[in-house]
Design a protein around this nucleic acid. Structure first.
Lengths: 152, 152
DNA sequence: TGATCGACCGAATGTAATTCGGCAGCGGCG
DNA sequence: CGCCGCTGCCGAATTACATTCGGTCGATCA
């Protein structure tokens, strides 16, 4: 994980579809070298995949929210089951299992506030392990695509 | 945005680096058709980019957390300034501006709990607009890479 | 029914990914 | 001190792919 690897990772986080040649040219190395580095990064698990980013609104998801759940009992089995359940719902994009006042935070997106409300009522209120939840509608969000390695 | 477009988006969310030929073959269409569809999806803003996903641990980010902020005064200028400030910090990956008990939720990752603590103390406690914040350490998180279009 | 338009196809061309033999630098070891 | 083996890099050759473009088909509408 030297400076060259960092640069490759940085570039591919920004644009995963630039050609290997262009990337190699930008870094001042041979395409074959670049290719081998990228393969090593994948093999080592540094790069885990390549994904297209999609505008949620184009997928009829105009409302996003973070839902904060309190779950009881707080056993491994219950947490695991709820996590799996939530992650399987199409409205859910991310499930966080967390410390603090809440036990689970779920990022959801829905076509409308109505849909969101119905979704929450239908999918969560009936579940026994859910003792309560709060909804934080997302007004804006900025996502930092490029993660740099941090110094220890 | 017909079924074919949806399928293309689904495939590219899963793997943005599969060749156009493979994708076309999987969908049973000609590569040229596939290419034109993808271009249209980009032009329409459905697909906004292609990004490599990176293991945070490989970038020395072993601890992740969601930080819940209360901000005052709740003016547009203050919110905007804080959002910009937070998004510019290397530890921050996402900033959510939200409704509810909190005004802003920030996803951060750091090398260690110590680093996280120092980071929070150094970067946020001194700021006037921050009247309080709570930290939720993330134990696990599952990210759903593939967003499907939702029916209205 | 005939014209027009849009979407798709497939061959042709240019460009890129990938392979592989060789070379240079480096560290270990006699 | 010199030799040996290893590792990472390079560049030409091969293979595969992206991209273009002229033609075809089917739907739509007058």
């Amino acid at each position: 994980m030297d400076e060259l690897d960092s640069a490759i990772v940085r570039h591919l986080q920004r644009d995963a579809r630039q050609t290997n040649r262009d990337l190699a040219r930008a870094l001042g190395i041979a395409p074959s070298t670049c290719l081998e580095r990228i393969r090593a990064l994948r093999a080592r698990g540094v790069i885990t995949g390549y994904h297209a980013a999609v505008d949620p609104a184009a997928l009829n998801r105009h409302v996003q929210a973070l839902i904060h759940f309190q779950i009881r009992p707080l056993s491994r089995a219950v947490i695991e089951a709820f996590k799996t359940y939530a992650a399987g719902l199409p409205e859910v994009s991310t499930v966080y299992v967390v410390t603090g006042g809440d036990d689970m935070i779920v990022h959801v997106s829905a076509p409308s506030v109505d849909h969101l409300h119905g979704f929450l009522m239908d999918k969560f209120t009936a579940r026994r392990e859910v003792v309560g939840f709060r909804t934080s509608v997302i007004y804006q969000h900025t996502h930092n695509q490029v993660l740099e390695p941090l110094a220890p």
